[in-house]
Write a protein that binds this DNA or RNA. Structure first.
Lengths: 361, 361
DNA sequence: TTGTATGCGTTATCAA
DNA sequence: TTGATAACGCATACAA
């Protein structure tokens, strides 16, 4: 009786597909079927499948044969339910469409794959509500661990995570008041590199296009900018400080505001790639030319920044490495190894956008 | 006896975390705990939780209270195991770092979220082997359906998918020999629009930077290009045809080859955004200027293409819509509704890169 | 080395 | 409307 609803279900599901293929194998081949087909007990089949050494060569052989013949695929959910390990990690990025986070995701995914963990990638879309939804989903899916580039002040489900004791790692960003292992970049150093470079190029008025103060990197870069400007004796004009939301449009708006002042800056520093691109557009619209009329340095080294005209000078961090390290960190927690937060260095890649001339290298 | 290993496990897992917080609630609150706390049976608790109308107001109230008090979160795995529905769809894109696919992913994710499905996003990294790995993972995770932008000729697990009868939808790309519902763009129309535009601008020698012939969009655009060139009476010179791999570097190489010929093209058409960016870099390196010296039209309207200098003329498809439609399609299959493949129109967005002058609109 | 039996957390069946 | 109980697919303790 029990299996009938399931079959009906499957039938209904494919009713209109009207495919002409052979009904080969049912989708739900269980370990029981395998055991039967191999002429062994489920216990033996299970042992063979999970690599338990307590198996005979014949058993292994017959079970393997049955597996390939029936097209058996273990049910990860049942397995996880029984063994309290899902072998899945959740990765929550702020915005998949931001190339920087796409790179982080890629690095994280590859690292997880290497450890034979599956990655559940979710996209908060720079929105705290969506972050909570996906965090909730991760929790109900019982992922073994979570890597997140967090939004906001850390209310809502971020606290629930702590309570649920799910292994958690912050990547790129952190949240105040959370004692969570993290892999971040040395933002202060990055800003210092950029400002020092622009100062060396003779600029004294640098316009800053910052990120939102609700994000740790936004705050860190802002503070570092102020410090660096003071340190290098540049103009500490509040008019030179703007803030966007890490998205393209806000970069354009910020650039417009900066360039609209009576004493506009001669150089621009954008706190992320998307805002840099927005600024690029605004500068062009104003009929000015990056490199020649106005220097531009951006955070985040996106692959194609070097292909632009002019190529963009950037403060780069290795996003892939950031993602990979974060995953390794969360696996360390999961598997009970000692964990250590990491701060990765940033480096300056000088190109024409800040010098007006082809780079030396 | 049975629960002891689990507790040990949890303990080991957090041993070195040495956090000082209160042990508030154990992570694994089950429905049993909820029922006990509420003074009802698990059956009643389950009914309340799943919105079964056969519940009394008091029962609902008490269970809800217990849920919030204990911080209960249903176990999606157990739920899926029992109900044969995971409420998860797998999304496999060719390359997350390609902005076009990032947009597709975003659209798909939002659509799934709207239907309260979770999206498992995986990245094939333009690699058939990785595609198979993730397909395998989707299968073992027993996702309810899969949306994929497929790689290669469709060997390996793509066939296994068919056999497993997992609802499947192709997005953007298709694979010959598979009778699978799909959401694609009208590539032929897109190419025609681009070629017609360039012809109208007076170009007779258009260099084509195509995609790999192993991908359906690569083939479709290639064939359409040949047809359009013939139709408009332009130079049908084989030297004007190149092929890349949908990645930046190959676009640069293709541009170099095209521009190196004795009779170089006066316009370039790139079959995707990343290759267009690569071409952009190569053109700059050769000291030429897009728009003025050489026209460029690209496939895929990436947000920031309009911000570049000069802004890029593109053949655009709405990637978000592509992703959203694909998800809706797979949900249609899952939930037994009639399904219908869709071909979305493309449209030409004319900007300076192909005209040398600011666009009218 | 193997088989049997139990339980993981949940939903669904069946009586009450 | 409710409670007891079986079953989902799998892994493991225990006995053989």
């Amino acid at each position: 009786m029990e299996s009938i609803p399931r079959q009906q279900d499957t039938a209904r599901q494919w009713m209109r597909a009207s495919r002409t293929e052979r009904p080969v194998v049912d989708s739900t081949v269980t370990i029981k079927d395998v055991a039967e087909h191999a002429g062994v007990s489920v216990g033996t089949a299970s042992r063979v499948l999970s690599g338990n050494p307590a198996t005979s060569a014949t058993a292994r052989e017959r079970v393997q044969a049955a597996v390939t013949e029936l097209g058996y695929r273990p049910d990860a959910r049942a397995r996880a339910l029984r063994s309290a390990r899902s072998h899945a990690v959740g990765l929550l990025v702020s915005d998949v469409r931001n190339p920087f986070f796409a790179d982080i995701a890629h690095g994280a995914e590859q690292a997880a794959l290497g450890a034979s963990y599956v990655t559940l990638l979710a996209n908060a879309n720079e929105d705290t509500a969506q972050q909570d939804i996906y965090l909730e989903a991760f929790l109900t899916q019982r992922v073994d661990g979570i890597v997140i580039a967090p939004q906001g002040e850390g209310g809502g489900n971020l606290r629930a995570l702590e309570r649920a004791r799910t292994p958690l790692v912050f990547v790129d960003r952190t949240v105040d008041g959370f004692d969570v292992p993290s892999v971040t970049a040395d933002n202060a150093q990055g800003v210092e590199l950029a400002v020092a470079h622009l100062a060396a190029e003779g600029h004294t008025r640098i316009g800053y296009i910052g990120g939102p103060s609700s994000v740790s990197t936004g705050r860190a870069r802002h503070d570092a900018f102020l410090a660096a400007v003071a340190r290098h004796g540049l103009d500490e004009d509040p008019d030179l400080i703007t803030a966007g939301d890490f998205r393209s449009a806000s970069g354009g708006a910020a650039a417009a505001a900066l360039l609209g002042h009576r004493r506009p800056p001669t150089a621009l520093l954008a706190a992320d790639s998307l805002m840099a691109v927005g600024a690029l557009g605004e500068v062009r619209r104003q009929g000015r030319r990056i490199g020649a009329d106005l220097a531009l340095v951006a955070f985040d080294d996106i692959d194609w920044f070097g292909e632009l005209d002019p190529p963009l000078t950037v403060v780069a961090h290795d996003a892939r490495e950031l993602g990979a390290r974060a995953v390794r960190l969360v696996l360390d927690i999961i598997e009970g190894r000692p964990v250590e937060s990491a701060v990765l260095p940033m480096r300056l890649v000088v190109r024409e956008s800040s010098t007006g001339r082809p780079a030396a290298d």
